[in-house]
Measured scan of single mutants.
Amino acid sequence: FSITQFVRNLGLEHLMDIFEREQITLRVLVEMGHKELKEIGINAYGHREKLIKGVERLI
């Protein structure tokens, strides 16, 4: 299971460039909250919320 699959499953594949540029893996994403996601350029609250909720389902 990769970050690419995870992001695609959430319908947020347009954010993949950010994850690749910042070298974010699923392991790193698990540790990130709204503040960190915003810092790397994910400005939409809804997108950040989707990512965080998606990660919570993985754990």
Rank of each mutant, 00 (worst) to 15 (best):
R8G: 07
V55D: 01
F1S: 10
I40F: 05
K35A: 10
G54S: 08
E49V: 14
I59G: 08
G46C: 15
V30A: 14
K50C: 11
L37R: 03
R27L: 12
E31D: 14
M32A: 04
L51V: 09
V28R: 15
G41V: 05
E13A: 12
H34F: 04
L15R: 00
V30W: 07
E13T: 10
G46E: 15
S2E: 11
V55N: 01
F6D: 00
L37W: 05
A44I: 13
V55G: 06
R27Q: 12
N9I: 13
G41P: 01
E22H: 15
V28Y: 07
E13P: 09
V30K: 14
E39C: 08
L10Y: 03
T25N: 08
V7F: 07
K50E: 08
H47Y: 09
I52H: 00
K53S: 09
F6Y: 05
E56S: 11
E36Q: 08
Q23W: 06
I24G: 01
N9V: 11
H14D: 11
V7Q: 00
N43V: 14
L58G: 02
A44S: 15
E36F: 05
R48N: 02
R57L: 12
G54H: 06
I18N: 04
E22A: 10
K53H: 10
H14V: 12
G54C: 08
K38C: 09
L12H: 00
G11K: 08
Q5N: 10
N9W: 13
I42R: 03
E20K: 11
D17M: 12
F19H: 00
V30S: 14
H34T: 02
M16F: 06
I42H: 02
I18C: 04
G41N: 03
E31P: 08
E39G: 10
I3V: 09
F1V: 10
A44T: 11
L10N: 02
D17W: 15
R57K: 13
Q23I: 05
H14K: 09
L12A: 01
M16A: 12
G11N: 08
K35R: 10
L29V: 04
I40E: 00
G46K: 14
N43R: 11
I18L: 09
T25E: 06
L10C: 06
I42S: 01
R48G: 02
E20H: 11
A44F: 12
Y45W: 14
R27Y: 09
L15G: 00
V28P: 01
I59Q: 11
E31F: 12
L29F: 04
E36K: 07
N43F: 13
E39R: 11
M16H: 06
K35H: 09
L10W: 03
L37C: 02
I52S: 00
G46N: 14
F1C: 15
I24E: 01
V7Y: 03
N43H: 13
N9D: 15
I52F: 02
K50S: 09
G41E: 02
V28A: 13
L51F: 04
T4Y: 14
V7W: 03
M16I: 14
L15P: 00
K50G: 05
L15N: 00
I18R: 04
L10F: 03
G54Y: 06
